[in-house]
Write a protein that binds this DNA or RNA. Structure first.
Lengths: 128, 128
DNA sequence: ATCGAGATTGACGTTAACGTCAACGTTATC
DNA sequence: GATAACGTTGACGTTAACGTCAATCTCGAT
């Protein structure tokens, strides 16, 4: 069945070590249930892991990823807490917009470099 | 004149420490000219620094940023080198595409979280 | 001459995010 | 019931990217 996963299932699927997964747990990013001493991961745990790895690909620290993940779960606070949550959400959105901008710029630069590279290859065509 | 910069000029402009700038030099990412023992940065040096910081915002390591920056300068190699450069350029493009995809996903998640948050604030309107 | 503001070179300290053992428990299978 | 395959908890090691001194230099203003 696909409703439960061992630590090595996940490490194989996402190509990370079991040490890494345990490390995320130490840091409070995961909390799988136990069967004896062994860890059993639910689909929800697996989804959290995916979010962590996505954060990693975007250069977020684990602390940042944790706080981002916490933004996704049900509202559990009073007005003040909700307001500060909203602020944090918008800060992350701004961060992502900056990243989008940076990616655009770098994409253009790389396209430029690619063209120059192709030109150089073209100009030297057969000239070896 | 704006044609030369001291290390503290740049540290002030980009809000980083001088130690950081010297560190980038140690790592071979910058090579300012010297006036006696003091470092003098040209607009080109400043541009390189901007590229480094952009890479940082996208989660690249300094090694990665260095190799990306090296992709931008004139073609200086033979066909084989140009081909491997082209390969590296396309790898970075793929990396950026993955990041774009990740950002899209996270944006959607955050919008979702934002709505839930607003709903919660709305539902509890005046209910304090 | 000196004095303070900014520069330079070491050299050691720090944090995040794991890697790398070592020593031990748990199953299932032969 | 021994062995192999997988799991567990420490505990220490490692790398990147700086921070944090300390000692020295240099240079224009007083």
């Amino acid at each position: 069945m696909s409703t439960e996963f061992t630590i090595s299932d996940l490490s194989a699927e996402f190509d990370i070590t079991t040490r890494t997964i345990r490390f995320y747990e130490e840091k409070g990013l995961l909390a799988p249930r136990r069967k004896g001493s062994a860890r059993i991961y639910s689909p929800a745990d697996r989804a959290r892991l995916k979010l962590i790895l996505r954060g990693k690909r975007l250069g977020f620290t684990l602390d940042e990823s944790r706080s981002i993940i916490e933004m996704y779960d049900p509202a559990h606070g009073n007005r003040d807490q909700l307001h500060s949550l909203l602020t944090k959400i918008r800060e992350k959105q701004d961060h992502l917009k900056q990243q989008l901008h940076d990616i655009e710029g770098m994409m253009l630069d790389l396209q430029d470099a690619e063209e120059k590279c192709l030109d150089a290859l073209d100009g030297a065509d057969g000239t070896d």
